[in-house]
Design a binder for these strands. Structure first.
Ligand SMILES: [Mn+2]
Ligand SMILES: [Mn+2]
Ligand SMILES: [Zn+2]
Ligand SMILES: [Zn+2]
Lengths: 136, 136
DNA sequence: GACCCGTGTGAGAATGGTTCTCATGACCAG
DNA sequence: CTGGTCATGAGAACCATTCTCACACGGGTC
């Protein structure tokens, strides 16, 4: 019934800077972090614009969002296919992982309890090798 | 090395009211919601106190926290053993579920990538039967 | 290349959930 | 019962995120 609603995205220096930066990072970063990094690097971008650019990238499926313990959102350039994350609590380093079995499990469990329109969320947190202090 | 650090919890009208209310609810509720419910019911409790009581319950393992899309924290009286949640996006109704296979999977995947001190988080969201509009 | 118009930008204000402050009140061990 | 310690609550403070709105600019068009 409604139009495809395809918002035309203009290519601006700011949006390019945000995506370029994300492509060079390997972990989840907060909008505030990204804003600070852009400023250090020289391509200054307004904070509000960083938020808007990130939201657009999320809508386009190019970036994933994750909420930290404190509720602050963190963003990462991710592959467009469904996957989960193995995240370092210390440095944010992230590895994309897949778990086919859990996909079916989630669907089955939801059906058994009469739930529809199901989605799931699975993340693994830990400390990566580089951040683990040399063990005795 | 450090003392057991066992903070003595006093039993107050406010803390009792919060836990009693949570025991009567079956789904995740925000602190603001709980505060409003307590006010309606008559046992008025300060908002700051609601937050403090909930945090204490979380620390004691009696309550689970979940962050919504908007980052707002939601609380629920839960069993003290490890489990996951099947949550209704509409009314908050929640069912506790377990998935033994995913436990081993998470540990294995983390180990394969050199991650230590691993934890995981798995939640399933959907629309419960009561909230699903009668299908045609 | 010049024009136009709708979209994007940014500084600052506003929002809103959560935490902090601190004077006052209430558990509860002794 | 009493004292000291912990808890409470009203309001201020905090802080990530969103909104406002005047201005800049991307990118079709001719
Ligand atoms: Mn999955
Ligand atoms: Mn588990
Ligand atoms: Zn790390
Ligand atoms: Zn429901």
């Amino acid at each position: 019934m409604s139009a495809p609603e395809v918002p035309v995205r203009r290519q601006t220096r700011q949006r390019t800077a945000v995506l370029t930066l994300l492509d060079q990072l390997d972990g989840f970063r907060t909008a505030q972090d990204l804003h600070a990094l852009l400023r250090e690097r020289g391509d200054a971008v307004g904070l509000a614009t960083v938020y808007r650019a990130l939201q657009a990238l999320v809508d386009d499926g190019l970036v994933d969002v994750l909420r930290g313990e404190d509720g602050e959102a963190a963003y990462r350039r991710c592959s467009p296919v469904h996957h989960h994350h193995l995240v370092c609590r210390s440095c944010g380093l992230t590895v994309e992982v897949a778990d086919p079995p859990v996909e079916r499990w989630a669907a089955r469990v939801a059906a058994e309890h009469g739930f529809a329109d199901v989605q799931h969320q699975l993340e693994v947190f830990g400390t990566c090798g580089r951040c683990t202090p040399a063990q005795r």
